[in-house]
Nucleic acid binder design. Structure first.
Length: 668
DNA sequence: CTATTGCGCTTTTTT
DNA sequence: AGCGCAATAG
């Protein structure tokens, strides 16, 4: 057959231009393998080529399961594999999205009241639910902060420990309160047929542990398991990996312990450090040649990261050109920080560089404010990545709440949202009465509202209830397919648009966002063929702002250092490199905290291909007043020979003067 | 009871 | 910018 020949030539393409180490990582067949891949060492390339290689060697694409850190990485991986072998593998996604799909199939085995129509609660939904729980228990947010409880619950789940036990071991005070709230929260999640982010993984692990039949089924289905960004996996993800790979242990993990920056949400980089003890037969491949950055950048990054005591020793090197030194710019305050950036960016533009080649990183989302002010004033096109997720916008969440309620009649968080944005005469008291009645009759609230005999079940039939029941029945009666038409119909039925136009201050923006959502749904439908409303809602609850980020558009990108992981830009600017920001105030008390902040800075530096500029302000204006700032301790750790310092002086600029730039100047 | 308005507080990083 | 809370109008 001609097929064999085709496979051979494709294989040649797949293996082209690889170093020996990369080749070994790509062509490895059986058993566990760890690829310790330094920044810019061609890790993505190795993973995609490996998937392509396995397919070209005759592995069925759906026998490969690849877990990535973001959806963006997953989509890029699928596309790249498709260009190599003409087939996009289906099972590539984040841990969360893969588990969400598994649960759609198997959640009913748990018999805990949840079914395959389940809703995924994101952190703000989780927050709302926790507030409901507090109210039930006659507690106030000041007695017990929902954020704190959420964190404790999340920790217990990611450590795979019993929540009650965990609380009593970890909480020094108020353990009883936390326990009550946590139990109420878990109960409500089950009653409302909902899961939180951690549950996606936890419940999957539970099913795989408790049902050997299911475990064997998955283990047989997935012959090859690939895990990317292994340094940022938590204990629960580690368990999942073990449950999925089975005795064959065909697990291929890639990561870089020096880029582990998520320990605050349970990631445990000892997972990567302990790989060889977990899998004594493991092959280890080290990728230490960097193809991204200049020698100056690599030298600076190496010296910095060597200050960390707890690490696997590893030396990144590059054969790229020496490049220009790291610039360290001292500015008087945040306004001049923005101004310096604007001037430098314009300069680079006149030299012929594109805005898309430049990125500005900072430690906290709030730091984008002053930068945006400056960029806006100077007319420099920019895009902020990850600050407010598109799907977290109020109008979008409102619209999605209508859809979620239609899918899951037990979803009270969505019902409450629906009720508040309808202004239909149903407030907290009436809603509570409805919930109580529904509980009496052991049915989901929305089902109760849709019933013809609602009045009899409720015991009375006031005007607001009649109207609301009618409205609910009409919502239920709307079609379920195709998704784009459902959304258009639900939007129409909700009256949301009219409401926004009538009442909202930023009506224009909100209307535009809704139109954008409709457009996105259209493209989702064309890309995904016939998918259900549930599929769509699942997709959007797991999508992050970074996933929708357009790296081709000609804007300067602004993002947190965390968001920058995995990306690269010719010109990188890191702002606010001061004590209190980097390292952040909340991390300075522990050695681990400081080391993680250092890794964060390391991630920032190694994003750059050509040039890194680091800025710090000598003072900042805070809500309390002005604040003296000290340069970050990390700056002293950069080798002098590749650093060039500049002090940006600032003569008083008249406020609101459009040509303020003329009043500023350099000085060495 | 609900709807609306104004005041104070908030923010470390995110699937 | 959004949310909880309190006060007021309907």
């Amino acid at each position: 057959m001609g097929d064999t020949h085709a496979i051979m030539t494709i294989s040649a393409d797949i293996l082209r231009d690889l170093t020996d180490a990369q080749l070994e990582a790509v062509t490895h067949r059986q058993g566990p393998m760890l690829v310790v891949a330094g920044a810019g060492s061609g890790k993505t390339r190795v993973v995609t080529r490996r998937i392509a290689y396995l397919i070209a060697q005759g592995t069925r694409p759906d026998q490969i399961l690849a877990m990535t850190f973001t959806n963006k990485a997953a989509n890029e991986m699928k596309e790249r594999v498709a260009t190599l072998v003409g087939i996009a593998p289906r099972n590539v996604g984040t841990f969360h999205s893969c588990c969400a799909r598994f649960l759609r199939q198997d959640i009913e085995r748990l018999k805990d009241g949840r079914n395959r129509q389940y809703t995924i609660y994101d952190s703000s939904d989780q927050n709302t639910l926790l507030k409901h729980c507090l109210k039930d228990l006659n507690l106030r947010s000041s007695d017990c902060s929902p954020n704190d409880v959420a964190q404790v619950i999340s920790r217990a789940k990611t450590q795979r420990q019993d929540i009650v036990e965990y609380i009593h071991n970890q909480c020094r005070y108020d353990a009883d309160t936390y326990e009550k709230v946590a139990i109420a929260y878990e109960t409500r999640l089950r009653q409302q047929n909902a899961v939180d982010f951690d549950d996606l993984l936890l419940l999957t692990a539970k099913i795989l542990s408790e049902y050997p039949i299911v475990r064997e089924m998955y283990q047989t289905r997935f012959k090859y398991l690939l895990i990317d960004e292994y340094q940022d996996t938590n204990h629960l993800q580690y368990d999942l990996m073990k449950l999925l790979c089975g005795e064959e242990q065909n697990v291929h993990a890639t990561g870089d312990p020096d880029q582990s920056i998520y320990s605050w949400r349970g990631a445990d980089y000892t997972n990567i450090m302990n790989f060889t003890s977990d899998f004594p037969d493991a092959r280890i491949v080290r990728l230490e040649q960097n193809y991204r950055s200049t020698q100056c950048i690599i030298h600076a990054a190496n010296e910095l990261i060597h200050q960390n005591a707890f690490r696997l020793d590893k030396d990144l090197f590059t054969e790229n050109e020496i490049g220009s030194p790291i610039r360290v710019i001292s500015v008087p305050d945040e306004a001049s920080e923005a101004l310096w950036l604007c001037r430098r960016i314009s300069e680079l533009c006149t030299e012929g560089h594109s805005l898309r080649d430049m990125a500005v990183f900072y430690r906290t989302n709030g730091q984008s404010r002053s930068l945006e002010d400056g960029f806006m004033r100077m007319g420099i096109p920019y895009q902020v990545v990850g600050n407010l997720r598109f799907y977290d916008r109020k109008e979008i969440k409102d619209l999605l709440a209508f859809l979620r309620l239609k899918c899951n009649p037990a979803d009270l968080v969505s019902l409450q949202r629906v009720v508040t944005c309808l202004n239909c005469g149903v407030g907290p008291k009436n809603l509570a009465a409805l919930v109580a009645t529904a509980e009496q009759h052991a049915m989901p609230v929305f089902d109760l509202l849709c019933r013809d005999d609602f009045a009899a079940l409720f015991g009375k039939n006031p005007a607001w209830a009649q109207h609301f029941c009618q409205w609910c029945r009409a919502l239920r009666a709307l079609p379920d397919q195709p998704v784009d038409e459902v959304i258009a119909a639900v939007l129409e039925h909700s009256g949301l648009m009219q409401n926004i136009i009538a009442k909202d201050d930023n009506a224009d923006d909100r209307v535009e966002n809704i139109h954008e959502l409709l457009a996105q749904v259209k493209s989702f439908v064309t890309n995904h063929g016939d998918c259900t409303l549930i599929d769509y809602l699942q997709e959007v609850s797991l999508i992050s702002d970074l996933d929708t980020y357009d790296s081709e558009a000609d804007y300067v990108s602004l993002m947190t250092l965390h968001c920058a992981k995995g990306l690269e830009f010719p010109f990188v600017f890191i702002t606010g490199v001061e004590e209190g920001y980097l390292p952040h105030q909340h991390s300075v008390n522990t050695a681990n905290g400081i080391e993680e902040e250092r890794r964060l800075f390391y991630v920032g530096l190694t994003r750059a291909k050509a040039e890194v500029t680091v800025l710090f302000a000598r003072g900042r204006f805070t809500w309390t007043g002005s604040d003296q700032r000290e340069p970050s301790r990390f700056l002293a750790e950069l080798p002098e020979e590749v650093v060039q310092q500049q002090i940006f002086k600032h003569r008083q600029a008249p406020p609101n003067h459009r040509r303020g730039a003329n009043h500023f100047g350099y000085s060495s």
